[in-house]
């Protein structure tokens, strides 16, 4: 952690680019968004399927 902190502070005092390119921060976030979106969709699909199966199971109303 020290290296990143020091690099960040240096970028402030020397007016240079920050140690982690902004593109990289955004891309990391974008990939994570996509992962979570797919996991939520899969969970919703699975829940809907379970509901359907419950409905058509013999002996249930």
């Amino acid at each position: 952690m020290k290296f990143l902190i020091e690099s960040f502070y240096n970028s402030i005092t020397a007016a240079t680019a920050p140690p982690i390119p902004y593109r990289e921060i955004i891309l990391t976030s974008r990939i994570m968004d996509e992962i979570f979106s797919q996991l939520r969709a899969a969970r919703a699909e699975n829940a809907a399927l379970c509901t359907t199966l419950d409905r058509i199971r013999p002996g249930t109303a």
Binding site: M1, F3, L4, I5, S7, F8, S11, I12, P18, P19, I20, Y22, I25, I26, T28, S29
Partner: peptide, 23 residues
């Protein structure tokens, strides 16, 4: 994330993420 970075840039300030494992 985009909003925060753009906001920092408009103020000529810097932000970073705690991805310290990268360093």
């Amino acid at each position: 994330a985009v909003d925060l970075i753009e906001y920092a840039e408009t103020k000529w300030l810097k932000v970073t993420a705690g991805h310290d494992d990268q360093f």
